[in-house]
């Protein structure tokens, strides 16, 4: 075991995770209370709220399992508490890996390699923290103003077609960045991506044919698992 991992898995860091979990639960509870009060003012029936909560809960189960898989991956290089804390607050697997890797590169070593020590680990953690301030800062400082001016604009034009196209384009461009990677590299990563996409298409067809809506919630996670199993089989075979 690398020396830095002994620090990275130290119980003291779990205290920080506990604190962060208390904070996000508190935020969620306060917002639920505010929304319930607002629902009363708007005469939204309680059943509707219950149904929405139930659907959101079911939809969250499998993506959360995917987050656990991400956590296991991240924990192997960053230790469990930092991986857990970062994924519970602000983070996502791709961002954290990117940032941790940039921190490692800045220290002149490769993430998770033998030369990746405590100091490089600290640089990774600092890089992850600094990078995440951008979204937080934008939200704290300009979200209120931005939301209000958008609402005014939208109320004037009444057409949100371009905003929908813009959002879809940005998401597709982000996906493209990660999808061209396996296309260029080929090998196991390409096979994984194609089989995961194939599983998704097949499940889409099954959902359309049978009307099995429950499968929709599980489609992404099941496709991922299929892709990952294919990666293992492909690596053993070739």
């Amino acid at each position: 075991m690398n020396n830095y991992l002994e620090i990275a898995n130290n119980p003291v860091l779990y205290l920080v995770v506990g604190l962060l979990l208390v904070l996000i639960s508190w935020q969620a509870v306060v917002y639920i209370k505010m929304a319930l009060k607002r629902a009363e003012e708007l005469n939204i029936p309680k059943e509707k709220l219950r149904k929405a909560a139930k659907t959101a809960a079911i939809t969250s189960i499998v993506p959360s399992i995917a987050i656990i898989i991400a956590l296991i991956t991240l924990a192997s290089v960053l230790g469990t508490p930092v991986a857990w804390g970062r994924l519970a607050v602000i983070g996502s697997l791709t961002y954290e890996l990117f940032a941790a890797n940039l921190g490692a590169t800045a220290s002149g070593v490769e993430l998770g390699s033998a030369s990746y020590g405590a100091q490089a680990y600290l640089t990774s953690v600092c890089t992850m923290t600094i990078g995440s301030f951008i979204t937080i800062g934008l939200t704290i400082f300009i979200f209120k103003w931005y939301k209000k001016s958008l609402n005014k604009k939208l109320a004037k034009s009444g057409d949100n077609t371009w905003s929908k196209i813009l959002v879809a384009t940005i998401i597709i461009s982000m996906y493209s960045r990660f999808m061209v990677d396996p296309l260029v590299k080929g090998g196991t990563s390409l096979v994984t991506m194609i089989s995961s996409a194939g599983a998704m298409v097949i499940m889409g067809l099954v959902i359309n044919k049978t009307g099995a809506k429950w499968l929709k919630d599980f489609a992404i996670s099941l496709s991922m698992i299929f892709g990952m199993i294919t990666a293992v089989i492909f690596s053993i075979a070739f």
């Binding site: 996906y175 999808m179 990563s189 994984t192 998704m200 892709g227 990952m228």
Partner: peptide
């Protein structure tokens, strides 16, 4: 290969 699996 989690990332290719997710984005596929």
């Amino acid at each position: 290969n989690i990332v290719p699996a997710l984005f596929g």
